[in-house]
Measured scan of single mutants.
Amino acid sequence: TVKFKYKGEEKQVDISKIKKVWRVGKMISFTYDEGGGKTGRGAVSEKDAPKELLQ
């Protein structure tokens, strides 16, 4: 599970739902399947990112 803040809201998403991951400076950005055909997005700092996300 990845915990992150998006627009001031605390969120979390299961690693299995993450589609795409990329690095922006010291942040790790990602998109994930929100269900219902929607794609969500989020970002975590490199130090807070789970190891599975960095692979």
Score class of each variant (00 low, 15 high):
Ile28Thr: 01
Leu53Cys: 03
Asp33Met: 05
Glu34Gln: 09
Val24Glu: 13
Lys11Val: 09
Lys26Pro: 10
Lys51Gly: 09
Ile15Val: 10
Arg41Val: 13
Asp33Trp: 07
Arg23Pro: 04
Gly37Lys: 04
Ile15Cys: 06
Lys17Phe: 09
Leu54Asn: 03
Thr1Trp: 12
Lys17Ala: 12
Glu46Pro: 07
Leu53Ala: 01
Gln55His: 12
Glu52Cys: 08
Gly35Pro: 09
Glu10Val: 14
Pro50Lys: 02
Glu46Asn: 05
Asp14Pro: 14
Val44Glu: 00
Asp48Gly: 06
Leu53Met: 08
Gln12Met: 12
Asp48His: 13
Ser45Asn: 15
Trp22Ile: 07
Gly35Ile: 05
Lys17Tyr: 08
Asp48Lys: 10
Gly37His: 04
Gly40Ala: 11
Glu9Val: 14
Ser16Glu: 11
Ile15Phe: 08
Gly36Gln: 11
Gly40Thr: 05
Thr31Ile: 13
Lys5Arg: 12
Pro50Asp: 03
Lys11His: 09
Ile28Cys: 02
Lys11Trp: 05
Val2Phe: 10
Leu54Ser: 06
Val44Trp: 02
Lys7Cys: 14
Ile15Ala: 04
Lys47Val: 13
Val21Lys: 03
Lys5Ser: 09
Glu46Trp: 14
Lys20Pro: 01
Gly35Phe: 05
Lys19Leu: 15
Pro50Glu: 02
Trp22Thr: 08
Pro50Trp: 04
Lys5Tyr: 15
Ser29His: 15
Tyr32Gln: 00
Gly8Leu: 04
Lys47Asp: 13
Pro50Ala: 04
Gly8Ala: 03
Gln55Leu: 14
Tyr6Val: 14
Lys17Val: 07
Lys51His: 11
Val21Pro: 01
Thr1Cys: 11
Asp33Tyr: 07
Thr1Lys: 13
Trp22Ser: 05
Ser16Thr: 10
Glu10Leu: 12
Trp22Gln: 06
Asp14Ile: 06
Lys7Trp: 08
Lys47Tyr: 11
Gly42Glu: 01
Ile15Trp: 05
Lys20Gln: 12
Val13Ser: 02
Gly36Thr: 07
Glu9Tyr: 08
Gly25Arg: 04
Arg41Ile: 14
Tyr6Ala: 07
Val13Ile: 13
Ile15Asn: 02
Leu53Trp: 09
Gly35Glu: 11
Lys20Arg: 11
Thr31Ser: 07
Lys5Glu: 08
Lys17Asp: 10
Pro50Cys: 04
Ile28Leu: 10
Lys26Cys: 13
Lys11Tyr: 12
Lys47Ile: 11
Ser16Met: 11
Gly36Pro: 09
Ile28Trp: 03
Ala49Leu: 04
Glu9Phe: 08
Arg23Ile: 10
Gly35Asn: 04
Gly42Trp: 03
Gly35Leu: 06
Lys5Met: 14
Ser29Pro: 02
Lys5Ile: 15
Glu46Thr: 12
Lys51Phe: 15
Lys47Glu: 13
Gly25Gln: 03
Lys20Tyr: 12
Lys20Leu: 11
Lys20Cys: 15
Ala43His: 12
Asp48Thr: 10
Glu9Leu: 10
Lys17Ile: 07
Lys19Thr: 13
Ile18His: 00
Lys5Leu: 14
Gln12Leu: 11
Thr39Tyr: 10
Phe4Asn: 01
Phe30Met: 01
Asp48Ile: 08
Ala49Gln: 02
Tyr6Phe: 12
Tyr6Leu: 06
Gly42Val: 02
Ala43Val: 14
Leu54Ala: 06
Thr39Val: 14
Phe4Ser: 03
Gly42Ile: 02
Glu9Asn: 07
Val13Lys: 01
Tyr6Thr: 08
Glu52Met: 09
Ala43Gln: 15
Lys19Asp: 08
Lys19His: 08
Asp14Tyr: 08
Lys11Ser: 03
Gln55Arg: 13
Gly25Asp: 04
Ser16Arg: 10
Tyr6Cys: 11
Gln55Trp: 11
Lys7Val: 03
Lys11Gly: 03
Gln12Thr: 15
Val13His: 01
Lys51Trp: 14
Glu10Tyr: 13
Val24Met: 11
Lys51Ser: 12
Lys51Thr: 12
Gly35Lys: 06
Ala49Phe: 14
Lys26Tyr: 11
Trp22Cys: 11
Arg23Gly: 03
Thr39Lys: 06
Lys38Asn: 08
Gly25Met: 03
Glu46Cys: 12
Pro50Ile: 06
Asp14Asn: 09
Ala43Cys: 13
Pro50Thr: 06
Asp48Arg: 10
Gly37Tyr: 04
Glu52Gly: 07
Gln55Val: 13
Val24Gly: 04
Thr1Leu: 15
Gln12Glu: 15
Asp33Gln: 05
Lys26Ser: 14
Lys26Glu: 14
Ala43Thr: 15
Gly37Val: 03
Arg41Asp: 03
Leu54Ile: 15
Ser16Lys: 12
Lys7His: 13
Ala49His: 01
Thr39Arg: 08
Lys3Ile: 12
Gly35Arg: 03
Gly37Arg: 04
Gly40Ile: 05
Lys38Leu: 10
Tyr6Gly: 03
